[in-house]
Structures are given as structure tokens and as C-alpha cells.
Simulated assay, not measured.
Amino acid sequence: MSTEALLATCWTTAGDAAPGRGDGRSPLSLRERAEAAGAAGFTGFGLLHTDLAEAERAYGLAGVRSLFEDNGLRHIELELLTDWWADGPRRAASDAVRRDLLRAAEALGARHLKIGPDVTGGPWDPDVWAEEFAVLAAQADGVGARLGIEFLPWSNLRNLHDGLRLVEAAGHPAGGLIIDAWHIERAGTPAAELARIPGSRIVGVELDDADEHVIGSLFEDTVRRRRLCGEGSFDLPGIITALRAAGWSGPWGVEILSDTHRALPVSEATKAAYRTAAALLG
């Protein structure tokens, strides 16, 4: 099994919750989730903004930090900020989330914040995006965290190269990419290309698997039909080898999203996610 750190991303421990369903809030308490992750072997934990707000009300940020520490969860990821490029009411709502995430990142000693691209298909200005990303990266850096953007095949940042172009244009050392195996494979990016990414631009990695063919939309396929690592068609050994060649040594995120995974008790789901990813990492 792996001796490297593994991070349970937010959906891996969320139980019956999913992106695109209401505000994504987990029906489980943070204590239940943190204990399941720690017991499974994870040393990292991801938390969605809506769950973070709920946990802060229940335990206070100091209590949340203690809960993570008590369960051996040292690598903390907070997500997800969108509309950070927008203006008007959307930007005002986004800025409120930004303030929450930055404040919590500092209090929890989070390693990084995860942000998303634009999935609406609207027009966008790469220069404005680079400028806004640099500002946000500097703010993350100011609270001791890094900033990672996740490219998505159905967004304005469709693949690895789109994402890299943005973070290089922004130029801030705290900014980089969140690289999800699902998005690499579904965008048709050869695993070997990951080896050429500057190691300093990799902020986070997410491992998962899926069947060879997409069923339904890309969004539906990614939310409902991911598989445990090693149980699908992805070239995960190739992806892991290439990322190691680029200089990545963890923590390795594990992001399992599926109807099957959500139906399991969290302790069982979390153990399966850890066991299968750790076996691949060797």
C-alpha cells in the first residue's frame, strides 16, 4: 500500500450529495466524515463551502481545526469558488464566498483553495481572467495557501493546455492547476503530456476512474458514473508516473463521484476509495 499522503476530496466523504443538486450540502456531520476519512487512512480532507459554513456554525473554526487534527487530517483543501471573474450581483455573491474561504484557509492552515472555470459557455477575456487569477492567487498566498483551478472539458478551460495558459499568463507563484484524472482522460490528453508540466504549477491532483464510453452528458457522466481507481478504463498508472516525473509527490486527492458510492455508508465508501487509490500508488 502507499506511504504517500492521500486526500479525500469533498465528494468522496459527502454521502448522498452531489454537484448540481441543490447547494451540494452533505447530509452528514463533519465529525462523521472526518472520522471516516481518518480511519480509512486519509491524511487530507476536502470541504465544500456550504459544508464549511455548516461546520463553522456547529464547531467554530477552531473546533473544525481540532476535529481535523484529532483525525490525522493535515492537508486541507477548501472549495469551490466560481464567478471570480464576473461583475455585478454574481461577483458580489462570489466575493462573499471568497472572503469565507480565505478566512477559513488561514484559520485551518489549508494547503490550497480550489476554484472553477466558466461552465456557461459565455464570452470571456483571457487578459481579464489572468489579472483576476493573479489577484486571487496573491490573496491565497497572503493566508498561507495556494490557489488551484480545475479545468473541465465542458467549460471555457477545456483541457490541460487551456488551464496552463491561464496560470502562466497570471504568473503568480501561488497559482496553479488542479489536475483530475477524469478531465485528463475525457479531454483526450495523453498521460505522457503531464510529465512536461512545470512541477511548480501543480497545486493538486485528483485520482478516479470511469468506463471507456461516456453515458449521457459529460457532466452527468462525471457526477453519476465515476469508478473506484483501477476499476475503470483510465490509464491511471501512466498518469501517476507522468505526474511523478513532473515532480508531484502528493498529497494525492481521491475524488469518487457516483450513484453507487453515494449509496454506501460513509465509512465503507471512504475505505474503498482509500484502498483502491493506495494500491495504485504502491
Rank of each mutant, 00 (worst) to 15 (best):
G175H: 11
A195D: 07
A187D: 01
L136F: 06
L136R: 12
L101M: 12
L102D: 11
Q139A: 14
G109E: 06
V143D: 12
A134I: 13
N156A: 03
R201Y: 10
D100H: 05
R99I: 01
G109T: 09
N156S: 05
G144S: 11
I178S: 05
L157G: 06
T120Y: 02
A192Y: 12
L152R: 11
I179Y: 00
G171Y: 09
L194Q: 04
A134S: 15
E132A: 07
G121H: 07
L101N: 03
G109Q: 03
V128S: 13
G121T: 05
R99V: 04
H183V: 04
A105K: 01
L207H: 02
H183K: 07
L152M: 08
R103Y: 05
R99Q: 04
I149K: 00
A170H: 03
P198K: 01
E131C: 05
W124R: 13
L101E: 07
V128L: 14
L166M: 15
A137S: 13
A107L: 01
H172W: 08
F151C: 01
E168H: 09
E206V: 02
R165Q: 06
A137M: 06
F151Y: 09
G171E: 07
R103Q: 08
G148V: 07
Q139T: 07
L102H: 12
D118V: 14
E185V: 08
L207N: 01
V119H: 09
A104T: 09
E206S: 08
H183Q: 11
H161M: 04
H183S: 11
V167C: 14
I115S: 13
W124P: 09
R201F: 10
R196G: 12
H183R: 04
L152P: 03
H112K: 07
R103G: 10
W129E: 12
E185P: 00
H161E: 14
A134E: 15
G175S: 13
A181D: 14
A110F: 08
A134P: 14
D141L: 06
I179W: 02
D209Y: 06
G116L: 02
T120V: 08
D208A: 11
V167E: 13
E132K: 12
L177F: 12
G199A: 03
L160C: 02
P173H: 08
L152A: 05
L102A: 07
A110C: 09
A170F: 06
G109F: 07
S200F: 00
F151E: 01
G171Q: 02
A104K: 06
D127I: 02
D118L: 14
D100V: 08
L166P: 12
A107R: 05
T120S: 11
R201S: 10
T189Q: 10
V203K: 11
V205W: 12
I179M: 06
R196P: 04
